[in-house]
Simulated assay, not measured.
Amino acid sequence: MGSNDVVRVGIVGVGIMGADHAERLARRIAGARLVAVADPDEGRARDLAARFEGVRAGADALELIAADDVDAVLLASPGFVHEDQVLACLAADKPVLCEKPLTMDSESSLRLVAADREAEERVGRRLVQVGFMRRFDPEYAGLRTLLESGELGRTLLLHNVHRNASVPNADFRSEMIVRDSLVHEVDVARFLFGEEVVAIQVLSPAPTSHAADGVIDPQVAIFTMAGGGIVTNEVFVNSQVGYEVRCEAVAERGSAVIGRPSSSTYTTALAVDGLGRWGGEVPADYRTRFATAYDLEVQAWVDSVRSGTPVGPTAWDGYAATAVSTAGMASLASGERVDIALADPQTLSHSASSPDTDTSENAPSTKEQP
């Protein structure tokens, strides 16, 4: 495509995330036009399409992907259908922004890494971008810049907090907390340290009474990084309070915290009941907390489609996060530390270019990727 061409985008999956992306593409993203949406619930797809002029709806994802008037595809469908849908995009030589997780297991994610590299050999660019939007969040991007500057010395520890007020249904089981929620912290750790996670242990505190029967919530996960750094992660999906995501990096000569309340001044005060209070609001959900990050992510993706220069998290990033999550589910079951061994990237393809050639500001450092 030319840099002045409008990218015609189709969205697969019209749940909460897909509907949010549709609004974004139709109202706020430059250089793109939403042309189609698809969902097995065709009625829901039609209801969404009716909100925008000139957008058609259907039930068949593969039909949307193959359509001549769709230049690029945004997948907001469930993870268990991602492999087939991403492969369809690659077969059609169409760029795809795939929401996390890339797939449900390491093996299928690795197949997509190989398929994307084969597509790169054919069309001259990688086609898969994975939806780890925190890399585009100004606070996370700024923290990475600070850590890479060396101003604070070597990074030693990260402390991540990830809380949701609640989950939408009782089918959100313990394993999903690892695979669908903790996966963001996996990518954050890789992004900020610039290296791979080599081991994980998931601990199971006493569960909240607000969790469904048998669900371990909250969970605490400990990552060991390739360079010896440690990352602690609390994931609590039924906190009842709101959507809290923050990160503290501890380095040799100081620390830095992001994700504080969104008020301009963060304050604490002693109330008349003797309890401490802080002066901010907790966002209701991820769409509020990371609204800017999502806008920047999708705009960067559209710009990359127009320019032919890929940006953002790669299929390898999706695979690495899935591999850690897979190990995390094993640790959840056993309570033990589980080591992680990633595939040898040289066995996947013979492409002359690989993800470590990505020089975009949202790409991991070269030591993070194969």
Rank of each mutant, 00 (worst) to 15 (best):
I29A: 03
A45Y: 09
A251H: 08
S349H: 09
S149N: 03
V37M: 01
V55Q: 00
D39W: 06
D273S: 10
T268D: 01
C89F: 03
G31T: 04
G43W: 10
E107F: 05
A72S: 12
T326P: 02
A30I: 02
T208P: 09
A115H: 07
G18S: 08
R179Y: 10
L97P: 11
L87E: 15
A323Y: 07
V235L: 10
F191W: 10
R179I: 12
Q129G: 02
A284E: 11
G150W: 10
V298P: 04
E185Y: 05
D20L: 07
S255G: 13
S334A: 09
Q219Y: 11
A66P: 14
I16R: 15
F172T: 13
R122S: 03
V245T: 14
P168Q: 03
R46F: 06
R33I: 07
V215K: 01
F191H: 08
G31A: 09
S360K: 06
A293W: 12
Q346K: 12
Y243M: 13
L112W: 07
D171N: 04
R56T: 14
D93L: 05
T155G: 06
N233T: 09
T292C: 09
L348C: 00
E107V: 04
E234G: 06
A341R: 12
V311C: 12
V167S: 05
D137L: 00
L102N: 05
P218I: 01
E336S: 14
A26Q: 03
M133V: 15
D285K: 05
R122C: 08
D84W: 01
L156R: 15
A49L: 06
T232H: 03
T145I: 04
T208S: 15
V55I: 02
L275R: 15
W301N: 02
C247I: 13
G259L: 04
Q219R: 05
P101R: 04
D69R: 08
V130Q: 04
V257D: 10
L342K: 05
I16G: 11
P364V: 11
L332M: 03
P313M: 01
V302K: 12
D295A: 07
V128K: 06
M225Y: 07
P283A: 03
A284I: 15
V183Y: 06
A221F: 13
H162A: 06
S365I: 13
R111M: 02
L62E: 15
V113K: 01
A115E: 06
Q85L: 08
S334G: 12
S307N: 09
G280Y: 04
D71P: 15
A57C: 01
L90N: 03
L62S: 13
G318K: 10
P310C: 02
M17K: 12
R287M: 08
G79R: 08
P168T: 07
F193L: 08
Q85P: 02
G131L: 07
D303N: 12
A61K: 04
A333Y: 11
W301H: 14
F236P: 06
R125Q: 11
S109Q: 07
H21Y: 15
D344P: 08
S204I: 00
G335F: 07
G328V: 02
F80A: 11
S106P: 04
T224I: 00
D20T: 13
L203H: 11
Q85M: 01
A333S: 15
S331K: 00
D344Q: 07
A352C: 02
S331Y: 02
Q346R: 14
L74H: 09
